[in-house]
Amino acid sequence: MRKQLYFGVSLIITVFVYLWQQNMSMRLAYKVSFLQSDYDKLNSENDILRLKINSNLALEKMDEIAKKNNLLRPDEKHIIYID
């Protein structure tokens, strides 16, 4: 009788562990999917922001802004080099 009881309990535990593992793997798969899409989204946003930084710092654009603000390239004698 006791043997049967042990057998029954171990069977139930095995089934329970199996089901728990299946469930967890499913939950983790969902989590991986969400993380993947978040990661892709952040990467894509990062790319766009880097592009914006580089576009804003484009020399042609900066030169135009400088001209609009009446800025001139300094003459050689106006430059002081600091070591």
Binding site: A29, Y30, V32, S33, L35, Q36, Y39, D40, N43
Partner: peptide, 10 residues
Amino acid sequence: QIIRNQFLNT
């Protein structure tokens, strides 16, 4: 909904 079995480092 998409379920992935691995994380892909793009």
